[in-house]
Design a protein around this nucleic acid. Structure first.
Lengths: 78, 78
DNA sequence: GTGTGACTACAAGTCCGTG
DNA sequence: CCACGGACTTGTAGTCACA
């Protein structure tokens, strides 16, 4: 019963490493702080939709791909 | 360029009306305030991922469906 | 039944640093 | 190169009275 944020973070990390980017490099592309990318990947931040789009673009993917199947068995704990 | 929030709001409204729900009824299902649903549908709120999941569940759909193709601002696209 | 502005509390996000 | 922390500013969450 992993939370949605952990699932997303895991996918972001996978995608990022596929592209051979460091957290800093990704942060640079998305104009995020380097520590923020770290927080997202570890599921520590409840990312907003517009930032989700920025990340998706930086990873050369789409929001719907990043969030595919994310609601199954993982209702947010608020 | 139409913002991603407007696109999302439009889809939420479409889905909601398809189900024959009022904003109040949807808000009830998602445990949101009635006015918050209104804000989302009008694209006035940069909704977070966990709330996106709640809305998706309340609408009997998925986050990835709601966010399909929103990153390039090309809404209808077919 | 819905749109809107305003409001407060707290999370998001930045910037400095450390091991 | 990354995890993590402290201190800080910006913005969202969530709600209300009223249009």
């Amino acid at each position: 019963m992993t939370g949605v944020l952990e699932i997303l973070g895991k996918r972001v990390r996978e995608k990022r490493e596929e592209l051979g980017l460091s957290q800093e490099a990704l942060a640079d592309v998305c104009s995020f702080d380097r520590t923020y990318v770290s927080l997202i990947e570890r599921g520590k931040r409840n990312i907003s939709l517009v930032n989700l789009v920025r990340i998706a673009i930086g990873l050369n993917t789409s929001v719907s791909q990043l969030t595919e199947g994310i609601e199954d068995g993982s209702y947010p704990k608020r």
